[in-house]
Design a protein around this nucleic acid. Structure first.
Lengths: 215, 215
DNA sequence: GACGGATGTTATGAAATTGTAATGAAAATT
DNA sequence: AATTTTCATTACAATTTCATAACATCCGTC
């Protein structure tokens, strides 16, 4: 969907973020210090930079000062409270606090990409094409009619593909946050999607948790 | 889900916020001025404080200065950057601007609760990667499906790696109840993990005690 | 090596969870 | 207002989980 630069000197975290964002369909380039990050921003021209402010050498803030057009989500530790202020002041598009949930990060990435309009507007898998801008779904060229809830659910699953989404998370995102209803509602809509799209295997059940769209 | 303290001197707004957050499953305690808020924070020990900065008597900012460990979402009427920065500088976890949609507030409440509770990280050993945030386990890149109990057990073992865990401790943490007497349930689940992950050597048996995950 | 207790292994049925189809209410469309 | 669509809920079927039991094997002690 987009080319992302992940800047974090902590190898396991960098790898985790790269892995998960790759799983949901982005191309991820890792960078482990400020110099490398700046070089890669020039050579690779990423659509979005995910930037840890705590870096050896050049700090994340120094990097942000040198950028003008590339969207940035900066990552800060919970204890670094001033960091968020600095980051927002320097024009970051969003921030996220460590430790964070992966679903939260993917949501913010999608949001920033949508805002900056560099996001792909369609998604295809198997014999199915989902056009997000026109909200149309096709299977083998044939038009599939989805209800609003069904489409929102499909969109959420696609944007978090390969990640387990809990029923609570799905309710939060597809229904309203303050919706107070049966969690079996989610199940029924998932079944409806599986039926309409003719995909039994793509939407996997994660027992006791929720569902995962695998691709 | 969590105990929340709602600090707002405007009765209808306080009541509305309480009602909606109760609907999504939280326990809400209202406070109508700074003194009352401080007293309730001490006596009730809430998981999160939602704090209007415009209060009679002690201001929200003054309250925030007196807190250190309780997460805070502060509510401000001003849309100016100054209030945001002031609040974040004082250690708030998030902010929201009046007038706000209830959906937005509940979303931020959930996000802050998740952040302060959960640790997003992955753990790798041998050819296995365990992603706690997405609940994925991979062996040689292949996806391994674990049941909830199996995953919880693996999580416990990893978080206590190189320590001997008694069966009682494992029961307490994974099954969440005190079991008096002898049970083979833990054993069976450990075997299942060893089998699914293909690791005979990593999960060592501690004779007459329990198990130890060695890495 | 023999013994007894502890752990490994496999099987099974009950309980919990999810799949499925139907129903009627609410919302949208005509 | 009438009709259609959406969708939450319900009831029941199918599936999965998992605690227990039964038997096999291992471990430490003698």
């Amino acid at each position: 969907m987009a080319k992302l630069l992940i800047v974090d000197d902590e190898l396991p975290i960098n790898r985790l973020v790269c892995k998960n964002l790759t799983l949901v369909g982005h191309e991820c380039i890792p960078a482990y210090d400020g110099v490398q990050a700046l070089s890669l921003i020039k050579s690779e021209q990423p659509d979005l930079v995910i930037l840890d402010v705590m870096l050896p050498g050049i700090s994340g803030f120094e990097i942000m000062k040198l950028l003008n057009s590339v969207p940035v989500i900066f990552v800060t530790a919970k204890t670094g409270l001033d960091d968020r202020i600095k980051g927002l002041a320097l024009g970051a598009d969003d921030y996220i606090v460590k430790p964070f949930e992966m679903a939260e990060l993917t949501a913010r990435v999608q949001a920033v990409l949508r805002r900056t309009k560099r996001d792909a507007s369609a998604f295809s898998f198997d014999d199915i094409t989902v056009d997000f801008s026109s909200r149309n779904v096709y299977k083998n060229g044939e038009h599939i009619v989805l209800t609003p809830k069904e489409f929102a659910l499909l969109e959420l699953l696609i944007n978090n593909r390969n990640l387990a989404l809990s029923r609570e998370k799905i309710l939060e995102k597809v229904w309203e946050y303050d919706y107070c209803g049966d969690t079996r509602t989610v199940d029924v809509h998932v079944q409806q999607l599986r039926h309409k799209l003719g995909i039994k295997d793509r939407i996997k059940t994660v027992f006791k948790v929720g569902y995962r769209f695998e691709i």
